[in-house]
């Protein structure tokens, strides 16, 4: 436990210290241009040319998090003695879940992989 605390403390301290040192000793000549949003060299102007469709990305975001947690739960169960005793039904359930994912991907793969339908 000491090692974990030491690692976390030292790692974070080193990271923060480097930022602080850089902040204290680097030149500071702020200007309006520097603090502006990066627009590939030009000032931002004009109406939006093309909207980025991002209303569904929250779901993808959610999936990436849930997926990781589900993976941990699966491993936790499969590596206990009780889980090992029930390996067959668990393995069957796992195969069913994987098969379901593969089936859904298989069904909509052509549609999803067609980049022209994204816009």
């Amino acid at each position: 436990m000491v090692a974990v605390v030491l690692f976390i403390a030292l790692f974070l301290a080193a990271l923060v210290l480097l930022v602080v040192v850089g902040y204290l000793f680097s030149p500071k000549r702020p200007s309006e241009t520097k603090e502006r949003r990066f627009e590939a060299g030009g000032p931002p102007y004009g109406p939006v040319q093309r909207r980025l469709l991002m209303q569904y990305f929250g779901y993808v975001y959610l999936v990436t998090v849930v997926e990781a947690a589900v993976g941990l739960a699966l491993v936790a169960v499969l590596t206990t003695d009780a889980g090992r005793a029930a390996l067959a039904p668990l393995a069957a359930a796992l195969v069913v879940v994987i098969a379901a994912v593969v089936a859904v991907v298989w069904r909509y793969f052509k549609l999803l992989a067609d980049v022209r339908r994204w816009g």
Partner: peptide, 27 residues
């Protein structure tokens, strides 16, 4: 060279979060 170059925090963002997230990410 990077450590001792000017730290620019853009105005349009939340400056505290702007500075904190890369540290958290690396960590």
């Amino acid at each position: 060279k990077l450590v001792f170059s000017e730290l620019v925090l853009p105005r349009h963002t939340n400056r505290l979060l702007f500075a904190a997230t890369p540290i958290l990410l690396f960590f």
